[in-house]
Nucleic acid binder design. Structure first.
Length: 990
DNA sequence: CCTGCCCCATA
DNA sequence: GTATGGGGCAGGA
């Protein structure tokens, strides 16, 4: 045992208290599992713990006196039962047993603490948190500074002027300000908030319906828990008042459970925690015994001790793996392969190109489906490729076959940030391999640890490039845009290709998802290995480079195999179902176009957004105060539930409606109506909502998407997400950047061109109404568009017989609503809602509209009938939008699908038109020798970045390509109008 | 930590 | 009345 020393704590000392227990769990869950190489003893948490402790000691050393610990201890929980169980027997009752491979590590960590020559403290009947609170209090009272190394939020109540927390994983310091950020109240009121909100992890009951946000509001208003409970009668919201009264005792018990004891009768005196002289040999012996090579080296380097001369310590636990369990040996039931094995006869048969052979399309469909299923899917049958010879053999095989399925494994879902980890290939059903390239040993913590045996990445890619760019080899991938982005970063431009996701989308949009797992289930009756099964989930999740290579081979090989088979099933269907043109002209060519747009990204002005965020926050705070004033109480304006209680419960305002779950409706239209009646509060809530929406969704979120390497924001476009053919944009969604309000447009101004460049925005004017005029062949609409008239005014004039000149804006507004309603598959109910008029009045408008535009009524009826008869509708370019359940389900659901079916050809044709423009755009710009780059698409708008001096050359090309996009496939009966403008930012260009 | 709900930004 | 994606809140694993 180390000699006990006692240096009483005095002013200016710095006491470090490490929460051992929470750290064990944290290290266990956050870090990849790790076992001792020689005998499989699980040591991941011990390893993480030692790294943290060593770093803590070294940092303190290097940071000099201010941060140097004079006293240091690691505090543990003693056992599960504590004094809190006497207060409440259910306390922590639902906590599961620790995982099997964590249990032996509790003892090991105590050994580790001894090896560091640091005191380890625990006491029966108390939790580590209580001991920490006690020591912290004692030290602070003596004028010392205290740092609590812990991540447990329960300890935040201890934070104060001289007591701060430090999160060992996030390396973040937590002072009173951070506590307030988390709990909405200062450290002194954390327990009150916890008492109200409860804690499901610790099984602290709290008060139902009250979360942290609400609890903080209440405590801020009433001061503390006891005052709140005594004045609970004053609470205005009936439900909450009742809960607070009924569960008052629960809240009091919860407070006692949450409150940490700062007067524990500790057995070890605070002074005994004084930092002791290190004993490097002992620490090195322990680390060597645990086989922590990196830490051993670090300790040896830092202390000047020769590690080779230190004998490894005997570490007491040896019982792993458990009896009867498997050893650590990788499975060795497959002979190592030195060359590519011969194909089986089945594989040879099945690898025929499904669409290439003779015979009718339907015969090809059957042949493809049969071929895809004739070899069973066996994930253990894939070959791991670790030599150049084997790789070359696979590449040769793929070249000979002429078709190869390809899939990449990477470290991230974000293709702009992902690092390549491996590539899998399939040359036929069941005939797949995996080429690991960037795997690391799962003991990735030990930097520089040996890399598993793999082909060197650049060498492998040099050879794969030949295959992937070979014009004679068709590459098949599922969602190729992702892999394309990965490969292009390595200088590989994949072509030619097929994309199974897009095949499925062209064939079956609206019939279900187009993800690989779903396609595998649908077409192969096969459930693929889940990503979570190889990489773990939640806290245990690791990036793919840490997945063991044999497991990765099963997973990645299966992906390529399944992709190949799905292609065999779907590709022949294209011709048979007359969707080959759609796929080849509207889907497949979009992949490189969108990939390049995503890769370019767009610059945002972060300073501008940051200023805006501040402005919005300030304005919202002022509004919030006024709202609370008007309400006569403080509440969470962001909670529709609480707002509803105030408006319709407390204030008893009219127009109360309930949603289907029984909550008050507080949507914008309801608040607008109330505001129109002269109520002040709803108007302010609307303004508040606008500001907080703009702040949380845009000014605060967007800077987080700036790619650190490019300094730009790269959205991701989904090609197969909608039923109509529209794209969608996510992470971030750049298709919903505000534009309607002045405040919102300030956000749009933050999307800027680079220096010396301009942003050009080009958008189709009224494209959907023009498409409608074409499809429904409506003479008045066609004429109006030909003459360049105001289409909504013309509609109003037709309907109500008033001249366009000097028209009442209200009349025009109604006509505009009707025009939009038509596109959306109008109903009297919806139109009435939109215009806030009686349903009968809306029905009259619609009737009148159809009298004036009978062709449109015919279109709507014909479309519905077609959809019911066939289960789908088509756009003018032949894209198919499926509504398989349009004849099933409840009448209201059917009506919904009918409206969608009416809308789909209009929305979808417009989507097709802009797709065609996008596909041609790059070539046309190149031919015109204009350096414009297409950055964004927002359904009817394209945004380009153009060198300032070529703007005037670029705009005519852009406009022409967009206007002529339907040609030659379709000659629209109305002209397309495109407006384009250049400016320094998106707002002014739009 | 994930899910459903409500609300809201765009075309 | 169409098509999306996403944030905050509250509840339950």
């Amino acid at each position: 045992m180390p000699k006990t020393e006692n240096h009483p704590v005095k002013s200016g000392d710095h006491v470090f208290l490490v929460d051992g227990s929470s750290y064990i769990f944290r290290a266990y869950h956050a870090l990849p599992p790790l076992t001792r190489k020689s005998d499989g003893l699980p040591i991941g948490a011990v390893h993480g713990f030692c790294q943290m402790l060593w770093k803590l000691l070294r940092d303190a050393e290097e940071n000099g006196d201010a941060d140097k610990p004079t006293h240091l201890a690691v505090i543990f929980d003693y056992s599960a039962k504590t004094f809190r169980n006497e207060i409440y027997d259910q306390y922590k009752a639902h906590r599961p047993e620790p995982p099997e491979d964590l249990r032996p590590q509790f003892g090991l960590i105590r050994e580790a603490v001894k090896a560091f020559n640091v005191p380890g403290i625990e006491l029966e009947g108390y939790e580590a948190d209580d001991l920490i609170a006690t020591y912290a209090r004692q030290a602070a009272d003596k004028g010392a500074t205290v740092t609590i190394v812990a991540s447990d939020k329960d300890l935040m109540q201890v934070v104060g002027d001289h007591i701060e927390m430090m999160d060992p994983m996030k390396e973040r310091r937590i002072g009173p300000a951070e506590v307030e950020e988390k709990f909405g109240v200062g450290p002194e009121h954390v327990v009150d908030v916890q008492a109200l909100a409860g804690d499901s992890v610790d099984n602290i009951p709290g008060v139902p319906g009250i979360g942290v946000k609400t609890a903080a509001q209440l405590i801020l208003e009433y001061g503390d828990l006891e005052s709140l409970l005594q004045r609970a009668e004053e609470i205005k919201q009936p439900k909450r008042r009742q809960n607070l009264i009924e569960h008052a005792d629960n809240a009091r018990i919860s407070r006692r459970l949450a409150e940490l004891k700062s007067d524990v009768p500790v057995e070890t005196d605070l002074g005994e925690l004084s930092v002791r002289a290190p004993e490097p040999e002992r620490l090195i012996a322990f680390c060597k015994g645990m086989e922590f090579t990196t830490i051993t080296k670090r300790v040896a380097d830092a202390t000047g001790v020769d590690a080779a001369k230190v004998e490894p310590a005997e570490v007491p636990f040896k019982y792993w793996p458990p009896e009867g369990g498997e050893g650590g040996e990788p499975k060795a039931d497959r002979p190592a392969k030195t060359k590519v094995a011969e194909k089986t006869e089945d594989q040879r048969q099945a690898a025929v190109q499904p669409a290439g052979g003779p015979g009718s399309p339907s015969a090809a469909v059957e042949a493809g489906a049969a071929a895809a299923r004739c070899v069973p899917i066996d994930s253990s049958a894939y070959e791991m490729v670790t030599t150049l010879d084997v790789l070359d053999a696979w590449i040769a095989e793929a070249m000979t076959a002429g078709v190869v399925a390809v899939d990449t494994e990477t470290t991230s879902l974000d293709a702009m940030q992902a690092e390549l980890v491996g590539v899998s290939l399939a040359t036929g059903p069941g005939r797949a391999c995996y080429i690991p390239l960037g795997h690391r040993a799962s003991e990735g913590l030990d930097f520089g640890d040996d890399r598993p045996e793999q082909i060197e990445m650049s060498e492998a890619l040099k050879r794969l490039k030949v295959l992937l760019e070979n014009p004679g080899t068709l590459k098949i991938a599922q969602n190729l845009k992702y892999d394309w982005l990965i490969f292009i970063r390595h200088g590989i431009d994949v072509a030619p290709f097929d994309d199974t996701m897009l095949l499925s989308y062209a064939l079956d949009a609206g019939r279900g998802g187009n993800g690989m797992d779903e396609l595998s289930r649908r077409w192969l009756d096969h459930e693929p290995i889940k990503y979570a099964d190889v990489a773990g989930t939640g806290r245990n999740k690791v990036t793919f480079d840490l997945v063991p290579i044999d497991r990765a081979t099963e997973y990645a090989g299966e992906d390529a195999d399944v992709t190949y088979r799905i292609w065999q099933v779907l590709k022949p269907r294209l011709a048979a179902e007359h969707l080959a043109t759609v796929y080849e002209t509207l889907e497949r060519p979009m992949v490189p176009v969108l990939a390049r747009m995503e890769r370019r990204g767009i610059t945002i002005d972060r300073a501008m957004l940051s200023r805006l965020s501040g402005d919005f926050a300030q304005a919202a705070a002022a509004l919030e105060a006024e709202i609370h004033d008007l309400a006569g109480e403080s509440f969470n304006v962001g909670s529709p539930k609480q707002l509803g209680d105030i408006l319709f419960g407390k204030m008893g305002l009219p127009g109360a409606k309930k949603t289907k779950t029984g909550a008050w409706t507080t949507g914008a239209s309801v608040l607008e109506d109330l505001a129109a009646e002269g109520h002040e509060l709803p108007r302010k809530v609307l303004d508040w909502r606008q500001l907080s929406k703009l702040r949380s969704t845009y000014t605060d979120a967007l800077p987080g998407y700036v790619n650190p390497e490019t300094g730009r924001v790269h959205t991701s476009y989904a090609l197969a997400a909608t039923t109509t053919g529209r794209l969608s944009s996510s992470e971030p969604n750049l298709q919903n950047i505000p534009v309607r309000t002045e405040e919102g447009r300030r956000i749009r101004k933050a999307f800027v061109a680079e220096k010396g460049m301009k942003l050009v925005s080009a958008d189709y004017s009224q494209i959907e109404l023009r498409v409608l005029a074409h499809i429904a062949d409506t003479p008045q609409l066609k004429q109006a568009f030909d003459d360049g008239l105001d289409i909504h005014a013309m509609t109003a004039s037709e309907m109500f017989g008033v001249p366009v000149k000097g028209m009442d804006p209200m009349i025009r507004r109604r006509a505009k609503a009707i025009n939009f309603g038509i596109i959306y598959g109008i109903s009297a109910f919806g139109l009435a809602n939109q215009l806030s008029i009686p349903r009968q009045e809306a029905a009259d408008y619609i009737k009148r509209y159809f009298e004036r535009f009978p062709g449109i009524r015919d279109y709507m009826e014909d479309t519905k009938a077609f959809a019911r008869a066939h289960g789908y509708v088509t756009t003018i370019f032949g894209r198919r939008c499926n509504y398989p359940n349009i004849t099933k389900g409840h009448p209201s659901e059917r009506a919904f699908m009918e409206r969608a079916a009416i809308n789909a050809p209009i929305q979808g044709s417009a989507a097709d038109i802009i797709r065609r423009a996008m596909i041609r755009m790059e070539d046309e710009l190149r031919k015109a020798r204009v350096k414009a780059e297409m950055l964004l698409q927002v359904h009817d708008e394209l945004i380009f970045e153009v060198p300032e001096d070529t703007v005037d050359d670029a705009i005519p090309v852009i406009v022409r390509v967009m206007q002529e996009a339907p040609l030659p496939a379709v000659s629209l009966k109305v002209p397309l109008q495109v407006d384009a403008r250049a400016a320094d930012n998106w707002d002014e260009a739009h």
